[in-house]
Design a protein around this nucleic acid. Sequence first.
DNA 1: TATTGTTATACTCTATAACTATA
DNA 2: TATAGTTATAGAGTATAACAATA
Lengths: 137, 137
Amino acid sequence: MPSDALVDALARVTFHMSGVLTRIGAKHDLSLTQLRVLGLLRDRRPRMTELAEFLGLDKSTMSGLIDRAERRGLVKRDKNPEDRRAVDVVITPAGLVLAEQVYDELRRALAPTLSGLGPAHRDQLVELLNAARKPSD
Amino acid sequence: MPSDALVDALARVTFHMSGVLTRIGAKHDLSLTQLRVLGLLRDRRPRMTELAEFLGLDKSTMSGLIDRAERRGLVKRDKNPEDRRAVDVVITPAGLVLAEQVYDELRRALAPTLSGLGPAHRDQLVELLNAARKPSD
DNA sequence: TATTGTTATACTCTATAACTATA
DNA sequence: TATAGTTATAGAGTATAACAATA
């Protein structure tokens, strides 16, 4: 079982990151979930159900999220050629531009927080975080 | 500027933790925000505005959150003796029990994810996470 | 029959604006 | 006048249940 100190440190990082992401998203009228959808679609072309499963959301929730993102021109629905019931979700060029912009802002926003760590410590942190990882993640 | 690998690792941890916390909260009909409120109140007795500022929420949002938590008997509003405009928020015994239960479940839920790290590595991780921290956090 | 996705419904979360009471 | 908090309102996020189309 993890120590209190470890659980607390992880919780603190999580809420700090969520705050940063929420603020960056808000600047672009994007919720945390929309931000995450956009991030996922950068290198994937999932169908609705896959996306919902990955995010841990109901498929009906997914319909609403994609409706709103599509209305803004950030993603689009495509017919799946192999299964006529399925709908693929694809990011648009405008969505891709926004996703990259948000990612840059995130890097810049995290810079001050991480300024306390030198290069060697940063590498260590990446290794430790990647080791603390379930195979399926 | 942090590397892509570091930003990605932090984002991954954040979404993993959020997922775990959301699932634990859902079991008890608590949102992530309600969970966080309960966690904060374990050792604090803030007024409405302080709570809202800490969470980065509008005070009107806070009113709704506390309304619902109070209706469930998890927190209660108290008059502030020094400023008759102010309202202090206090956790109830039932709220405290639930908060501790959730915290235990979180520790247990994180155990498998962290099983890849030995004791020395865990200590290292805690130190690195605490070093990567703005003074005000 | 089972699966994919949408729609209808209801509730929570959230912010903005307008308000009351107190400082 | 300014601050603390609530209420009214509106939109987004969420799940459940019922449904249509396809497998």
